[in-house]
């Protein structure tokens, strides 16, 4: 196992790691990773997130995050932040408390929203609160 596996949800250098990580590396993380392109289509979907949501990656990858995969994030608290960062060409790294509806159960999570200009993907990281 590589040392980067110890990277935590809140690690400051996480963006670089995610951009370089293989699928297997993403799957080994203990929090959910959803990577989307500049058109909000899901490009990466790790095992943790897949198991939590009950959806296999092939049902999710290539679909629009905010309408097909996670409509619950399609409001000013999440989607709007990505839109704003895209429009302003600014760096986004916000962590917010949120509730996801994983398998229709309300689940308290921390969401970390990551975006930066020039990067192919933007990320929503999902950390289940205990």
């Amino acid at each position: 196992m590589n040392t980067e596996q110890t990277l935590s949800f809140s690690n400051a250098a996480l963006f670089d790691y995610l951009d370089r990580a293989s699928d297997a590396e993403l799957d080994s993380l203990d929090f959910g990773v959803i990577g989307m392109d500049d058109a909000t289509q899901v490009r990466r979907y790790n095992r943790f997130e897949s198991a939590a949501a009950g959806l296999s990656p092939d049902r999710v990858i290539g679909h629009a995050l905010f309408t097909v995969v996670a409509p619950c994030m399609n409001n000013f608290m999440v989607a709007q932040r990505f839109e704003d960062a895209q429009q302003d060409g600014s760096v986004l790294d916000d962590t917010i408390d949120y509730v996801l509806t994983l398998r229709m159960r309300p689940v308290k999570v921390k969401l970390r929203l990551l975006a930066r200009p020039g990067s192919d993907l933007r990320y929503v990281l999902v950390h289940r609160q205990t």
Binding site: A70, N75, M77, V99, L100, T101, R105, P106
Partner: peptide
């Protein structure tokens, strides 16, 4: 007390929730 909720419902309710929860 919420037992089942779908994403669109969460999308609409989260901005209203005074405690940031959907319990």
């Amino acid at each position: 007390e919420i037992t089942m909720i779908n994403p669109l419902c969460a999308q609409l309710l989260m901005p209203l929730s005074p405690d940031g929860q959907l319990a």
